[in-house]
Design a protein around this nucleic acid. Structure first.
Lengths: 128, 128
DNA sequence: CCGCACAATAGAAATGGATTTCATTTCTAA
DNA sequence: TTAGAAATGAAATCCATTTCTATTGTGCGG
């Protein structure tokens, strides 16, 4: 699996993004600066590759629109998503990984993946 | 907010369901045994009410289709979802609630809700 | 018992993100 | 250079969900 042109453009956009970006966000931004940038299909496909390569993390906020962000290869993290300003803060550790062994013992369940996102109000919005 | 006829039928179906059910599952099952059971719209709206009343929990498995299940009023739980047989086991405690205080201190973030689902292989499928 | 006001409902159409199709273009390796 | 593979784009399609609008049902005052 190689890094195609489309993938590279998507990576570029994600490097400059400050927040979680949807496929359509990414596509829009690419088309904004270059009329013949890759189409939406390619963006979706690129994201799929990038995710399976471990360079990009897909984030599901439960609103039907998947978001993406750059991560250190193979890593992932979870978010505190502010419902007021929609900003998101990264948690500095994954709370699930520590539990894998316990869950395997207690339930005989082998963990392969997980979804974890936390919603609420961020510091800034609380003091307003 | 009262318990309409539609809500009651939805509750009935959920009582007899053994697993997580999507809105369309529920609707299909209702129509299966009664041609003039409430329409899909009503099912969606009933589920919305039931969720906000705390009688039903919405579960997001990240596949674009929301599932629902009956819970003890006001409670919720998380799942170990087997990717092989699609069965799901309930975790007997919420791992997030214990962390609320810590996260509030560390990040100044007030938690209002969260998504947490764990995927992998269940005991039965592992031994096969 | 009547009729009004409002809630509940149905079914169809609209929405919108994601995916598929397929013809075309670009790469890659020989 | 050239055949085969991979990547791409545009449009079509999918599918859960939401919205719209007209209809039905229910409770209540008269």
């Amino acid at each position: 699996m190689r890094l195609t042109k489309g993938c590279k453009k998507v990576l570029e956009v994600l490097e400059h993004a400050h927040d979680l970006s949807s496929a359509q966000d990414i596509h829009g931004r690419m088309r904004g600066e270059d009329d013949k940038a890759p189409g939406l299909t390619t963006v979706y496909r690129s994201l799929e590759s990038l995710v399976s390569m471990g360079l990009v993390q897909a984030v599901d906020l439960g609103d039907g629109e998947r978001r993406y962000e750059l991560v250190k290869p193979g890593e992932h993290h979870h978010h505190l998503v502010c419902e007021s300003c929609r900003s998101s803060v990264h948690l500095d550790q994954c709370l699930i990984e520590e539990l894998e062994e316990g869950i395997r013992h207690k339930y005989g369940f082998q963990i392969k993946g997980h979804i974890l996102e936390i919603f609420g109000t961020c510091k800034g919005c609380l003091t307003k």
